[in-house]
Simulated scan of single mutants.
Amino acid sequence: MPQLNPNPWFLTMIITWMTFLLIIQPKLLPFTPTNLPLNKTNTPNKPTPWTWPWT
Rank of each mutant, 00 (worst) to 15 (best):
K46L: 07
F10N: 06
M1V: 05
I24M: 11
F20W: 14
W52G: 09
N35K: 10
T19L: 14
W50R: 05
N39S: 08
F10E: 11
N39V: 06
Q25T: 06
M1T: 01
N7Y: 05
F10S: 09
L11D: 14
P8S: 03
N5T: 00
P2K: 02
T19G: 15
P49M: 03
M1E: 02
W54P: 00
K40H: 12
F31C: 06
K40T: 08
P47H: 01
L11A: 15
K46W: 01
F10L: 14
L38N: 05
T41G: 03
T51N: 14
Q3L: 10
P30C: 04
T34P: 10
L21Y: 03
L29Q: 15
P30E: 08
T55V: 10
N39A: 12
N35Q: 13
K40D: 13
T55D: 15
L38Q: 15
Q25M: 14
P26H: 05
T32V: 03
T16H: 07
T41R: 06
N7D: 14
T43W: 02
I15C: 06
P53I: 04
I23C: 07
W9D: 07
N39Q: 05
T48P: 02
T41V: 03
L4C: 07
T12V: 01
T12C: 02
N7A: 15
N7Q: 12
K27H: 05
W52F: 15
T32A: 02
F20E: 08
F10T: 02
N42H: 09
I14M: 13
L28C: 09
F31H: 13
L36V: 02
P6D: 09
P8V: 01
T34W: 06
M18G: 14
N45F: 07
P53A: 12
N39R: 07
N5S: 07
F20N: 06
L21K: 02
L11E: 13
L36S: 07
P2L: 01
I24C: 07
K40M: 06
T41P: 11
W17N: 11
P30S: 13
W54L: 03
P33T: 03
M1N: 08
K46E: 04
P37S: 04
K46G: 01
P49V: 00
Q25N: 12
T41K: 13
T51S: 13
Q3E: 14
L29H: 05
L36N: 08
L4K: 00
L38W: 08
T51D: 10
L22M: 14
K46R: 01
P47I: 01
P6F: 03
N42Y: 10
P8A: 05
N35L: 12
I23M: 02
P2H: 01
T43E: 04
W9M: 06
T43D: 06
N7T: 11
Q3C: 06
K40E: 10
L28W: 08
L22I: 10
P26Y: 02
T51K: 15
T48C: 04
W17F: 14
N42A: 07
L22K: 09
T48E: 10
P6I: 00
N42Q: 08
T32M: 04
W9H: 11
W54Q: 08
Q3F: 12
T55L: 10
T51Y: 06
P6E: 03
N45L: 11
T16A: 15
L38P: 02
M1H: 10
I15S: 15
W52P: 15
M18I: 12
Q3T: 00
K27E: 04
L36Q: 04
P47A: 03
I15Y: 06
P53Q: 04
P2Y: 00
T19S: 14
T34A: 11
W17C: 12
